[in-house]
Amino acid sequence: MSKDEDKNKNFSVFSRISKSLGVEKKLEKTNEVIEQIDIQETDETTETTEVLEEQATPVTDNVVDLAEKQRKEKNQEGVKWLKAAADLGDTGAMNELAYCYLAGVGLTPDPIEGELWLRRSAELGDLWAIVDLAVRLLDGEGIERNAVEGEKWLHLAVERRDGIATRVLGYRLLHGDGLQKNAEEGARYLYLAAESLHELVAMRLLGLYHIKGDFLTKDVKKGEYWLKRAADGGEKIAMREWGRYLIRGF
């Protein structure tokens, strides 16, 4: 007889003896109890996991909601202080409010409110606000486009001898960018910005335009003079263009 057959025979004998003694029923009941315990533990574990998951989600949401609430409160507090300073006539605070509202930085975008503060600052004579308002009106950036009014504000800044405004006016007249093209007037304002107001970007533009013969009469020596002056002044694009020009030209 093989070992497997011997095991089967012994198991069969054991089963018969167990039945006669009632042991098998006890074993069956014991197995049922064990199974019930396993099922109960599984159910309890599942319920516990579900409860923990349900509890975890609101906690995460609450943290996010709290952070958002704190951010809004800080922004509101910041606006309160900026408006307090603006109401006392501080144009820097007005400019900050205008930027935040028009660009939507830290605040919900509000073009009407942004333009209101920008105009208040410009009307009080703040050069930054005057130039920014002029450019926005010329381009229709954040506020309704109005080229006529934009040019008026730009000329006002030029009268105040603002280098950037003078260069911007010259560039736009030369290119016909937002304004009616007028090459002669554009060149005049560009030269004014470079020669009298020492505006480095104006110098760089004069240099490039004269060397290439774009928008201005081609004059390499004059172009090299202005481009090098801008580079010597530390204007980074002029430095790059001057270096490139010396190595391989344009």
Rank of each mutant, 00 (worst) to 15 (best):
I130S: 11
K218C: 03
R120E: 15
D219P: 03
I143E: 00
T60D: 02
E96I: 01
E41W: 07
L118D: 06
Q40N: 15
G233N: 01
V64I: 14
L82T: 08
V148H: 09
K69I: 10
R161V: 10
G104R: 04
I37Q: 12
V135F: 12
I164A: 13
L27P: 03
Y101A: 08
W117Q: 08
V220N: 02
R120N: 14
K72N: 15
P109Y: 06
I34W: 12
H175C: 15
I211S: 00
K19V: 08
L133P: 03
L133G: 05
E184Y: 13
A103S: 14
A67I: 10
D132R: 13
D90P: 04
D38R: 12
L21Y: 06
A84C: 14
E68W: 04
V201C: 05
A230W: 03
Y209W: 09
E184N: 13
L174A: 13
G243D: 02
D87P: 08
P109Q: 12
G178I: 03
S20H: 14
E41V: 13
A98R: 04
P111R: 08
G78I: 00
D90K: 07
G78E: 04
L97H: 06
A193G: 05
A230V: 01
E199A: 06
I130G: 11
D132K: 14
L227F: 04
Q76I: 11
F14L: 15
Q70T: 12
G223W: 07
Y101S: 10
K152C: 11
D162L: 03
E123A: 04
G163D: 08
I164P: 07
P111W: 01
R172L: 00
T166C: 02
R229G: 00
S12T: 10
V131Y: 06
D38K: 15
K222Q: 08
E123L: 03
V13C: 11
V135G: 10
E96W: 00
E50T: 12
